[in-house]
Design a binder for these strands. Structure first.
Lengths: 237, 237
DNA sequence: GAAGCTTTTTGATTTGCGTCAATTATTTCG
DNA sequence: CGAAATAATTGACGCAAATCAAAAAGCTTC
């Protein structure tokens, strides 16, 4: 059964950079073919290698992008609302390079690839929005690569914590927001190593209780992390 | 002094996917403001952190994209003709995330960012070409991340050699095409470790003499490398 | 609230890979 | 061409991080 996108959600989707510049007619075209779906946690949404059919928009909950090779699995990113995913595959009409699963109960809008393509040609503003969104994602990916190749796992963790703190409005304490094993995988390390890394950060004023992180003095941690806006600019997708 | 783009080079640039669909008027607009420049080897073209002003098109020679952090440097990619670079920064009008330098004597076309932007709005075909190019680059980057996170350095080398062999038309022997230390950096390893890795590949029929690589039996090496078109699809940029 | 699961932590051990240092090969350039 | 510089290789060593194993702590679920 197809479930239409509600007006309320429409509003929310519209607030995304990808859709904000769009004129009403075009936006309606996109939403007409789109449908919303609720998913329980740990549901596979897409599998790498499959052909892409829909642009996904995460409205609530959280989604993990991950990849497999030769028996190994790695977390590529953890997405939170409101963000789009697999835009590149949608545009290329190519096979997915990553798989996706829900982590929490999630609400997701699915926009048919053909509609995205059609509106792209119809509305120059949308075209510009798509290319901007893609450029942002591209740059985020470059940052990921730099992060992996230039930093040790301890430095990656330190920078992640500083970024998370910033996202939490520079709060003195904040929630980790995801399981530690997934954080570990996303940072390119094992859960065991992450656990030890947290202890190594104690002298820098980092305390952790469950999923609650407390950073006593951010500038202390920054001394170790050496954050750079050419690597750490917070960009979800 | 501004050097115009020759007709011959014009032809070559046009053959790029980015420009192929473009109508003549728009292409002329782009080329009118563009200029060509010759660079000796080892010349810094752009520096990460600087604001982007030009879309770069490599016509001949080769260019290294690299990044620095806290005293470390890593090779992000080595480009060969004909390819564009820093398209994402151009579109976002943002600061470069990577630096670039010539490796060989190179000929490069510089297209002002404003012109790219203007033609993007003017010509839907160009808009589509830009978004396609960007999507390709994005996907290449995702592959890089998967390569780094899912494979050991030996596996990365093995897959690189198989990809290079393919690029050389499945020739039994081919040139490495870049210094070993840059290859090492681009694969995320040290020169010393690369040297050892080459020796480890001997039992798999890999021989190396200077920059000449010989692969006796590709299928043998594939047994180790386990190449996947979701990671190894050859895409330069 | 206890039983059974999963996740996290901790410790012991191994290993892949980086670092340091020295030698050999290769390239550059006067 | 030969000297100097740069790259590549090799060996010894150390460290970061993975693996293995087991205990502890958190979650479910009935």
């Amino acid at each position: 059964m197809v479930i239409r996108v509600s007006d309320f959600e429409s509003q929310e989707i519209r607030s995304l950079t990808l859709f904000s510049g769009l004129d009403d007619a075009c936006f309606s075209t996109l939403m007409r073919g789109a449908y919303v779906q609720n998913f329980p946690p740990m549901i596979d949404l897409i599998t790498e290698g499959d052909k892409s059919d829909f642009l996904h928009v995460l409205i609530s909950g959280s989604v993990e992008l991950f990849a497999n090779w030769s028996g190994h699995e790695t977390t590529m990113a953890v997405l939170r609302p409101t963000s789009t995913f697999i835009l590149a595959a949608t545009i290329r009409r190519a096979r997915y390079l990553m798989s996706a699963r829900t982590l929490e109960k999630s609400r997701i809008v699915l926009v048919p690839s053909e509609d995205v393509s059609a509106v792209f040609d119809l509305d120059p503003d949308f075209a510009r929005a798509v290319v901007t969104e893609l450029a942002v994602c591209y740059r985020a990916n470059v940052m990921t690569t730099k992060n992996l190749k230039l930093r040790s796992s301890l430095e990656r963790l330190a920078n992640h914590l500083l970024a998370a703190r910033k996202l939490a409005g520079d709060a003195q304490s904040f929630d980790l927001g995801l399981e530690k094993r997934r954080l570990a995988s996303s940072l390119g390390m094992t859960p065991e190593n992450l656990s030890r890394a947290f202890r190594q950060l104690k002298p820098y004023g980092v305390a952790i209780d469950g999923s609650r992180v407390m950073i006593a003095d951010a500038s202390d941690l920054e001394g170790l992390a050496k954050p750079s806006d050419l690597i750490d600019e917070s960009c979800v997708n």
